[in-house]
Amino acid sequence: MQQPPGSIPTLDLSTARSVDGSFTPGFIEELRNAAHTVGFFHVVNYGAAPTQVDDLFDITRRFFDLPLQDRLALHNRLSPHFRGYAGLGTEITRGRPDSREQIDFSPERAPRTDHPADEPYWLLQGPNLWPRETLPQLEEQAMVWAELMSGVGAELLSAIGVALDLPEDYFTEPFEGTPAWMAKLVHYVGGVVEDAGSQGVGAHADYGFVTLLLQDQVGGLEVLPHGASDWVPVTPVPGALVVNLGEMLEVATEGYLAATIHRVTAPAPGVDRYAIPFFWSPRLDAVIEPVPLSEELRSAARGISDDPENPMLSSYGSNMLKGRARAHPDVTELHHPELVRR
């Protein structure tokens, strides 16, 4: 069923496949409409254990309740791989600080020290920073969640392939072996970062493939669908994932699927907001070629909404490194001054 303009639809992942294992036409139609018209949708019944969401939010709150010196022991300035804790106001979006603190993590892998000079994105690979002594449960629960989200992301990407009239394994190869997913545990705090104003995180598009966001009930996430002039709030649905598509899919489909602009408004002073985004992403060396769209879909493609100040790149690793370097200029200047734009 076609969604009303500006609405954020809800898809039930338990209805995605029929008994013979194929995707159901109804689910594929809902997914195609949501991904093309809004670029954002909720997903429910995705396989979380009964208390998994509540437990993950609880351990996330406990981390941000740790003494500041314990969090700073994991400071991302200690990581040349952009991992670990980022304090309030240290992540930059559109040139302004965000009213949030967070811990970033990705697959636990050894650093690449032998990468070619023209493949600097390999510097993103490396170990995570966790409070293994003060809060050891955080790593365990976060990585179990990442494993679940990897499965959900892969399933949705298979369904997106079918929605584009392609085989369901069309996007599989770039993810084989060492997918470079990224995730965050985020704490938004209003009224603390003076230069941020009402910005929880500034307007942006994600630079991967599929984003799976778990948000609490405070709210504040807003999206700007293609062609819209008004921001649309993404009202929290308890336990649901908020799904949006990244720049890699916009590049691959010439804009038929859009990397929809979104932002987060900071909560009121004294109110805490927690969110856990997961970015299902391919190998760092993956290069995304254009998708062979049918004439029907190509005629509905909007073209790439490229920003000269923030160009989209077909190399996933290059796109990710560009985004990380801009978001954390202090880490970039400390560890990778050669990446700083002159």
Rank of each mutant, 00 (worst) to 15 (best):
A252H: 06
P277D: 12
V243S: 06
P277Y: 13
V243M: 03
A268P: 01
I261N: 04
E254H: 14
N244R: 13
V243W: 03
P277A: 14
Y256W: 12
V243H: 05
I276F: 05
L241K: 08
T265K: 15
L249A: 07
N244L: 12
M248W: 00
L241H: 05
T260W: 11
V243P: 09
E254C: 10
G246P: 05
H262S: 08
T265E: 10
E250M: 09
N244T: 13
G246N: 04
V264A: 15
V264F: 12
G246Y: 04
L249S: 08
P269R: 08
R273A: 12
P267H: 14
N244C: 12
N244I: 13
N244M: 13
R263I: 11
L257G: 00
Y256P: 02
A275N: 06
N244V: 11
A259P: 03
L241A: 10
V251Y: 12
R273F: 04
V251R: 13
T253F: 00
P269D: 04
T253N: 05
V243N: 05
A275K: 04
G255H: 00
V243D: 09
V271S: 02
P267Q: 07
L241G: 09
V242Y: 01
A268S: 13
V251I: 15
T253I: 00
T260S: 10
L249I: 09
G270N: 14
L241E: 08
H262D: 09
A266P: 00
P269Q: 07
G270E: 10
A259K: 00
L249G: 04
Y256F: 15
A275D: 04
G246L: 11
T253C: 01
M248P: 09
I276L: 15
L257W: 03
V242T: 14
E254V: 04
R263P: 01
L241P: 13
L245S: 08
R273N: 11
G255W: 02
T260E: 06
E250Y: 05
M248T: 14
E247R: 09
M248Y: 01
V251T: 08
R263L: 10
E247F: 02
R273E: 08
A252F: 07
V242Q: 05
L257K: 03
R263W: 08
A266Q: 11
N244Y: 12
A258D: 14
G255A: 10
G246C: 13
P269N: 09
